[in-house]
Every structure is written in C-alpha cells, then in structure tokens.
Design a binder for these strands. Structure first.
Lengths: 261, 261
DNA sequence: ACTGAATTTGCAATTTTTTGCTGCATTTTG
DNA sequence: CAAAATGCAGCAAAAAATTGCAAATTCAGT
C-alpha cells in the first residue's frame, strides 16, 4: 500500500483516473473520508469534494458529510459486526487476487473473509466457482463472468452453509484448481482446527477435491486451537493474512514451507 | 491486538455509518442503551441522543427513555419495499398458512411471492423444506424450526435459483407433501406457462416430486400466457390469490376443480 | 508554435453542519 | 420524597460544504 501511495504522490492523476480510484476505494472499504482521499490523491479537499459530488450525481456512490459511502451497501443485509476486522478482510481478499487465472475451477467455503473475497472477486475474470455457502453464492451472483454452482444439502442455521452427507458426496465429484478455505483456528503445530465436527468433514472433502489450498486468515485467528482438526498446517499451500508477508509473526508457517502473501 | 482496538477507536465514524451501526444493534438485540452506544461508538451521549432522535423520526426505531427499541421486526430486515405488489403478496403468503401441518416435507420454488411466503412462514411449525432458490433459503434460515435443504446446482444470475440437470436430478429423489410453485403466467386454458425453458424443466420436476401442488399467484399474472408450458391448470390443486375466493374473476379455475383460497 | 476559449484546480471568505458542553427541566428509581 | 439518571435547549468550537474567483492546464484551430 505504501509503495502505491508514494507512486501516486509523484504523478498527478487525471480526473477519470481519480474517479476510478475513488470508486474502487468506496467499493473496497464501503466508506471513505474526504480528508483521506485528499491525502492519498495529493489534491485539495475541494477537488475531492467536487469528484464526490459528481459521482454522487451519477449515482455511483452516496456522498455524506465528511466523505462518501457505498450505495449498494445498505441493500442486502450484510452484517458487519466488527468494523475494524472488515478492513483487514478487504486487504486479504485483494491479495488473493494474485492467485487467480482465467478459467479456473474454484472451491470457496464459508466465513466472512471468504464472503469478502467473493464480493471483491475481479469482475473481468471468468471462473467456475463451487460453494456450499449461501452468502458467498449470493455475492457471486453479482459477477456476470462467474459461473456459480451451489453445492446443495441440509443448511446450517448458524453458518449458513450446506452440510452433511449429500454435500460432501457432491464435493467429492469436483476437481478444483484452487480452494479458498475459511479458517476457524490456525496454529503451526496443530494445524487448521474447528469447533464443529460437521464443518470439519466438509472442509476435509474440499481439501481432497482441490489441487491447491489457500487459507485466507486474519491474524487474530492464528495461534489458537479448537477441538477438531481439519488438516495439518502443511496441507495449506498458500496463507494470506492482512500482515506483511515478512512479519516475524508468520515465521513458523514459513518454516513449514507455506507460501505467504 | 492492542493495535487493532486502538485503531478502531481512532477512526472517526461518519454519521450515516453510526446510523447503520445503531440500526444493526437494535435489530440484533432488540434494545439498546444510550450509554452503551456512546461507549461503543466513542462519542458523547448527546450525539447518540440526536442519532436516536433522527432514526426515531425516520420511523426506523422507537426511542425510549435511556435508549431505543425495535419498532417492528420487519422494518429494516429486507428490501421489502422494493418487492412489487408487496402488500398483495403478504396477503397471499398468510392465506397459505392454512395449508401447513406439523412435520410436512415442502418444496418451494423461486419468485418474490414465494420469498414472502418463506419470510412469513409460521415460526412455531416444524417442517422440512427443499428449495432451489437462494433468497428463499436465506429467509428460511431465520426460522429455527425449519430444516432447510438447498437443492444445489448451477445458479442462474437473474433468477437466483439453481437450474440444470443436477438440480432436477436431486429434486426427482424428493417426495414432498406440498409444493409451492412460483407462477410465471397462469391461464385456465393454457395452464401454467414460463418464458424460460430451464425453469419449466425445474418446475416439472418439482410437480412430479410432490403430492399436492399449490400456486401462489397475484391476480395480474392470471389470464396471460408465455411460450413454454409447465402444466395444465388442473395439475394445480390449490390456487391462492390476493382476491376473495368468491371473486368471479376466479370462476374459470373453480370450474376446473381447483381449490381456491 | 501561438491564441483564446473551456475546463480544471486551488485558494479564501462565508455559511452550514456537526458535535460536545453547560445549565436546567423531566423522568425514573429506591 | 429525594437522589440519580436522562432529556432538552441553547451555545460555541471545530469540521465540512459552498461560493466566487483567479491561476493553471488542456485543446482545438489556425
């Protein structure tokens, strides 16, 4: 992020570029502060104000006192309990874009980080995505280039995902290039763990069905343990957190041979 | 971890964000204390008071001494204002309650009327419900007594339902007591018709899988025709509209032997 | 390359909005 | 009934928005 903003300070942006940048910021963060934008874009607050006003008139964003918020944000019930963690999850979701290739078959499990990943999935990449998560599927329907296949079965009220024998049976018939695995708890020694036995079975099946396992994990879930084990940490090929890849906090996983992004 | 919590405190919230936050709090716990909100949002109680006053004037919450409570549970929950002819659909959904019995196995297709039916499904009735509709499934998850089973498959971007061979295959394995069929167009002579061939296949499968077919139909969809035929009007056992059962408009269906509610 | 119009951008002065505070009225609670 | 808690109105400081204007930039047409 720092790299990018430095770059931005030196080169003045065209109006259209600014607009795109602002729209992206709003999309990713759901809200932006006017002052932040002025600093990031290295232009006066007045210009930002004018940009926001224009984008508001276009209906692209909603301008409010002190900044702007996403218009689509209110529509669907997207309960974002912890605002701070949401920022991190957006960062993680965007890092994960680096792994995507045209035409991949992808498995995505549940969880709010994966939901964020689904929301921010690049609009221009074609992919076939299997998921047992209701909210993830809902998000993916917003992406015209994504072929979404819901893995059916008995739905869990709390987790809002399909669970049970039929679901696992269906997953076993899939061959995916990538699997984005939601993280319960992650520990270098005890691996990936969960508190729900059925979720463990589901995730095991997803791992078996995929060539490459990616774990999107906010750092606060690292170094904690739950009762049931899904897999060893080694079974995860790529670990993506909101931290800098060089952060010593992640060293134990690096030593296990995981790719860190 | 300290970093994160400090970070949260330092970021000022926009007024609209606070409003969203408060609405969500009210929705989740039905009541909120003014002092709690002031602490959580890290602003003065006066500001919270003003926020609550504003939201009260908007009718979103009810302000009471020392905090606020939820007005009625269904105000902020869904985009129900956007559902066309919502009033009528609510009436229809409630009439349909008369058909429900404890422990039934039920099939529900897509459509906004069925969505409304799912939303208003009696909280106290136990049932097992199969559906290929994403929004319907989401609504059903709010009902603890309902076992929801999603019929998976390739998802249609527009209709937000699962379609295709796998979906139909799964439906064919179900034996349901009741099937609530969303209506494309309904005509006494030409029967139930749709403009999407795949949806037709899906509905045919649902009809085969159910003992009794119920059609929830707003009256304006009656006496119009589309290209593909799902079934004869006679195949429908019970027709529920927003009209009075004795309305002469419904006579043609009565003569065909349909039960009218 | 030069001109001149149109657009864009930044600046300063003014207005509006937001927010916290003080003092006082009102309600709740023991 | 009295003490504590809550609500309310007005006020002032800070932040943000608006307005008018001038400098800078872009760009078409010579």
């Amino acid at each position: 992020m720092d790299k990018i903003s430095d770059y931005r300070v030196l080169i003045p942006m065209l109006k259209e570029e600014r607009h795109d940048f602002i729209l992206n910021e709003v999309k990713v963060r759901n809200r932006v502060l006017l002052t932040d934008l002025a600093v990031k874009l290295n232009i006066s607050e007045d210009t930002v104000r004018r940009d926001l006003k224009y984008l508001d008139e276009q209906g692209k964003i909603k301008k409010v006192h002190g900044g702007a918020i996403s218009t689509s944000y209110h529509l669907y019930t997207y309960k974002e309990q912890e605002i701070y963690a949401h920022e991190n999850k957006s960062v993680i979701a965007q890092k994960a874009h680096a792994l995507l290739r045209e035409g991949q078959v992808i498995l995505i499990s549940g969880g709010t980080t994966n939901l964020e990943f689904a929301r921010l999935f690049p609009k221009n990449i074609k992919a076939t995505i299997f998921t047992p998560s209701l909210p993830v599927a809902m998000q993916l329907l917003e992406h015209p280039n994504v072929q979404t296949i819901f893995i059916g079965g008995r739905l869990s009220h709390e987790a809002q995902i399909a669970l049970g024998g039929e679901t696992i049976q269906t997953i076993s018939q899939v061959r995916a290039d990538l699997c984005f695995l939601g993280t319960g708890q992650l520990d270098p020694v005890h691996g990936l763990t969960e508190f729900d036995w059925e979720v463990v079975q589901l995730k095991k099946a997803m791992i078996l069905a995929s060539k490459k396992i990616v774990s999107l994990t906010i750092s606060e879930k690292i170094n904690s343990i739950q009762v049931y084990k899904v897999c060893d940490a080694r079974a995860i090929h790529t670990l993506i957190t909101e931290l800098n890849p060089g952060d010593p906090f992640l060293d134990p996983f690096k030593q296990l041979g995981l790719e860190i992004l």
